[in-house]
Write a protein that binds this DNA or RNA. Structure first.
Lengths: 198, 198, 198, 198
DNA sequence: GATGAATGAGTGTTCATTCAT
DNA sequence: GATGAATGAACACTCATTCAT
């Protein structure tokens, strides 16, 4: 526990724990003390690494953003059939796995924080940009076959992201499992329609 | 300052101020003391009215819910033509006015709180229920003409609410005004498609 | 509940509830608010009757003292045999019933309070005086037969009271029931010896 | 004021001050803030050392217990004559010095607290246990000579402690000095009788 | 690198009390 | 007689942070 470590190892470790505390207690509910207690280290040590809490929060968004991006590229779509690619994409975006692993914006309290902290906002915006670009790329691959027509891939991608964030938000309120699954199916249809009409 | 008031007048006044503090500082960042200072009253007076902070938060959600409903009923749709009614409905939901006045869920930190506070969750869920019902009623009026067909109005309404929350969420990241307007237009098309396909 | 009452009825009612709260929460832990809540009346009403908390506490000691005295006179010793009278007296003082009903000083927090509040002290002192007098009377009755010799009944009575308060104090720490009973038996022997040697 | 200290020095210092505040204001009347003010330190420093008030109270009982024990071992009984040892023991227990230095249980408000706080109760119980053991040891030394017979040293010790606590309790009500001294003398006789009859 | 001492501001909440109704 | 509005002080405790070691 009290092993001497250096910044390179310790910092991501602290950030990971900080994030877990945020998920549990919200951004404003999370504190250096709680993170320190969880890690069984001294609160001063966290200050030692990040100078202050604000800094640590910005570094957290940075860190999460990098993880987010890696996740995108790992989600490979094997098929080459354009329609099937689209279907697979939609499926991924509505899968439980996706939401379990992309919870930064899902923890809406970080979003709220971003409205008050310009640095955090910028990094979050950048994260969405990257996400839109990824979808654009997919849409263009699908469109290149000629079978599917997408006039403005960027706009379509933005609509998809937007709709997905609505889904992420609203699905919490479906507790009945079958209703939840119905909602998920409807969501997938909606996304496909957005692409078809794009 | 020391004006005598009663619960009927004071409570909504406190809630209004509480909400403003939340928007500024986030749910966990908002404190009874800050609300009191803003109102130039004593913090214990707030406790006098709401017993504790949790209670106050729950009452806030309810209060906002009532405002939500009133706002909706005030936005009268004059026309009787079914298609025009739908168009008007979509227009309302994508108007700036709407988002300026229905920002409870828009302040995502309340959402976060709801994941940790069952009472808040229940009341928020109830608020969405009411909203879905309002839309269902509109859809049924439109459908009753026979010109428009909606198989499952509740599902359609849920998709609308979900998509709107995504819009509310995501539109913050459009800073360029023309891009923002384009996004709004796309959003309206998407909503109309959802209804058409419902 | 909200029946209109007058001071004569209401005051003892409040004092009774105040005392119960003290037993539960200690003198300093007891508050007007808690008493009011228990009685489902408004805290201001208590102030209305007693002007302030200090006053109420003094009136409580008064009230309890009266009850104490009444209890003394109710404990009749039927026998006339001097030794049996003494035995019966000792038995009474070591009975559970006695401690259940004379808990004013038993609630040691009132005692503590008395060290800081002269009024309370005086009334408590008076209560002990009355108690000593009662025992003196009993000792004199027993001694008048000639069979038992008590040189200084007042001193003996004081020793008895003192020893009894030690018993009241210490018996709480005997949890094992048989140990507790043994301790009680020893106590009774000790008291009898005090009288014999008096 | 801002002298740097460590736990070893600071904790007993805080406990000493806490105890003095308790004597002045009662257990429930004593507050962290009052202790801090008395010591001219910041209230949160007290929390830093004891985590919370409950803990501090428990540690106080332990601390007083240690002082109790030390006090007893410091009061050396020089003689080896068994009867004189007993006399000296009784003298110590009825000395002013003893009560000035062992006032934990004498502050009856801690006792009251112990009825509501199981931890405090346990630690107080433990303190009495230790005290009883110390007396038992003395009684056994005295008995080993053969001149004095004590059947059940533990029971006798318990009776002594109990009687002493009654003395501690009741002597407050003797204001007249000569009456007080007479009472003390009677008390000593009583204790000796208890031992003789043990 | 890591700990612990120390501060001062802030949190939600309780309390006794005053006053108007 | 009884309620509710309002205050201001106090409470235990948390927090971010600084500094010495």
């Amino acid at each position: 526990m009290k092993k001497r470590q250096n910044a390179e190892l310790r910092k991501p470790d602290i950030l990971k724990n900080y994030y877990q505390v945020i998920l549990k207690e919200g951004v404003e509910g999370a504190s250096i003390a709680k993170v320190a207690k969880k890690m069984k280290i001294n609160p001063s040590l966290i200050i030692h690494y990040f100078a202050n809490k604000d800094n640590m929060t910005v570094e957290l968004v940075d860190y999460m953003s990098r993880i987010y991006n890696r996740l995108f590229s790992d989600m490979i779509i094997e098929t080459t059939d354009p329609q099937k690619r689209i279907d697979r994409l939609v499926e991924i975006f509505c899968s439980d796995e996706w939401y379990l692993n992309t919870d930064i914006s899902g923890d809406f309290s970080i979003l709220t924080l971003s409205f008050r902290n310009k640095k955090v906002f910028k990094h979050l915006q950048n994260m969405y940009d990257e996400f839109v670009k990824l979808i654009v790329r997919e849409l263009e691959i699908a469109a290149s076959s000629g079978k599917i027509k997408i006039d403005n891939p960027k706009r379509t991608a933005e609509l998809i992201v937007s709709t997905l964030e609505g889904y992420r938000h609203f699905k919490h309120f479906f507790i009945d499992e079958s209703a939840s699954e119905n909602y998920r199916q409807d969501m997938m249809k909606t996304l496909k329609n957005i692409i078809k009409n794009g």
